[in-house]
Each structure stands twice: as structure tokens, then as C-alpha cells.
Simulated assay, not measured.
Amino acid sequence: MRLARPLAAALAALLPAALAACGTAAGADTIAGADALTVGVKADQPGLGLAEPGGTFRGFEVEAGRYIARHLGASRIDFKAVTSENRERLLDDGTVDLVLASYSITADRSTKVTFGGPYYVAHQDIMVRRDETGIASVRDLAGRQMCQAGGSVSTERVVGGLGVRARLVPAPSYSACVDMLLAGRVDAVSTGDLVLAGFAARRRASVRILNAPFTEERYGVGLRKGDIDGCEAVNKAITRMYQDGTASRMLAIWFGSSGVDLVYSVPEFEGCS
């Protein structure tokens, strides 16, 4: 017993320091309070995220990402292009710290990343060539050629979710899908209305949006899996972005003339997990 008492006292003295060290390690795994953050955005989606000459990015998601990062405490904010297919990998390996890239929240994706938000609830719609007369709703896509952008879940909602037997034509991105639509290689492009609106604004003479929405796309902020503190901080920033009028102003600037019915209220959050 004489030996046990000194040992117990030594362990008791070391315990607070050990616990403090554990707390520091856990805190280091969150983006909340970080001085510098890299935001992943799309480089080829007008209105949402578009790369400009010189390496700058412009669009609603770029501005929203900057706003959120600043309210997380970052004084240095960098942007990096991501695609629908590499978003999870770039988050996981630390290349980017958060992603705003028309990143629809789904059950499968939530097993790989933690989602803050959504920061906007888009509605899936359909884009066709302006002279198209045979497609007026999602049901009319049966037997027609629809573009399938790599890494996107939008076409699965049509074919799998609604059972519409469209003929899928693969493409690497939605910008490639729009090019294929204009070239007559596909009959329709279907995804969130904000994505379509950005392209339509640049191609008004050639394409049109049906304005016949049929599902929701909840665009979330992707974070590394398990960053609950970061997720909660992101949700607070999104709430403030809507409450102080910043979200409404940005949506009006980028999509106000698109004809899409915009939503200016704070979205209902998924909850951090």
C-alpha cells in the first residue's frame, strides 16, 4: 500500500494534463475558428461558381462560401475548383476544408461527409432547346435522350425515383451537358433550377427552362466527416446570412432575372451528425 499511494497521486496529477491534451487534439479536427480556409466551388457553373481569367471565381456559392468562412473566423480564404466526382476525396484528403458546389444532401453522401445547411433548397427542373415542343414535364422525358453529368444524382431522381425511362447520355459535367444540348446530342438537361438558371441566363436565345419543378435539391456545405463543431458554426453563419439580408441580395444579383422562383427564407437545417 505504501507504493500504491504515491503511484495513485502521480496518476491523479497527470490526468488533468492528459485530458487537456485530448481536448486540444479534438479541437484541431474542426474548421471552426481556423485562420485560413480553402473553399471548394465549381468552376463551370455560371451564377453559382465560375472560374474567371486570372484564377478568380465568381458566383452565388463563391460569395456564400466567403461569407461562411469569414464568420467561422478565417482571415485568409482561398478557393479551389472541385467537380461532382471529386468533392468527397478533396475534403477527405484536406485539399479543401468546405465545399459549396451544388452539393445535394443525400443519405449516401452523408455517410462520407458531414453536411452543414442546406444553404439553399433548389427545385429540380428541366432545360430544353428553345424550339423544343415535345417536352413539357418530366414524364415527357420517357424515351428521350437526357444528359447524365458525372457524379450527379439528379438523373437518378428521374429514372430511379420517378421511374421515367429516359435514355441517359453520359457527360463529365453540366457545362458539357449544355454543350451537348445545344449540339442536338441530347434532348434535355435536368438538375437543380439554380444550376439551370445560370446557364440559361447566358443562352437565352437558345434554351429555356420548363418551370415545371418536380423534386427538391437541398444544397449543403460539405465538411470532413465528423466535424460537428464546424457544422454547427456553419449553420449559425447561414442563419445570419439570411437574417442580415445578405442571402437575399446575392440571390437577386445572380438569379433575379432568370425567371426562377427564388426562396429568401432560412432553409430548415438537416442537423449535424
Rank of each mutant, 00 (worst) to 15 (best):
T38H: 03
Y67K: 06
L19P: 03
I31Q: 05
V41N: 00
C22K: 08
A34C: 07
L37V: 03
P46R: 00
G59A: 10
G47K: 01
G65C: 09
Y67M: 05
V62I: 09
G40T: 00
A32R: 12
G65Y: 03
L37Y: 03
L50G: 01
L48W: 01
L37Q: 08
A21S: 10
T30L: 09
T38S: 12
G33R: 05
A34R: 15
Q45N: 10
T24F: 13
Q45M: 13
A26W: 11
A34T: 10
A17L: 15
T30E: 02
G49M: 03
V39H: 00
D35L: 08
A43N: 08
A20S: 13
L50K: 04
G23I: 11
A25Q: 14
T30M: 11
G65W: 04
C22P: 00
Y67V: 10
Q45E: 11
Q45V: 15
V39Y: 00
T56A: 15
L19H: 05
V62R: 06
L19G: 08
L50E: 15
A26P: 01
Y67G: 07
L37T: 01
G47Q: 03
E61D: 10
D44Y: 13
F60L: 15
L19T: 10
I31W: 01
A21P: 02
V62A: 09
L37N: 06
L50W: 10
A25W: 13
A20T: 12
L48F: 02
I31A: 03
A26T: 11
G54E: 08
L50Q: 12
G59F: 02
A25I: 14
T38R: 13
G49D: 02
G23Y: 07
A32F: 07
A69Q: 08
A69K: 11
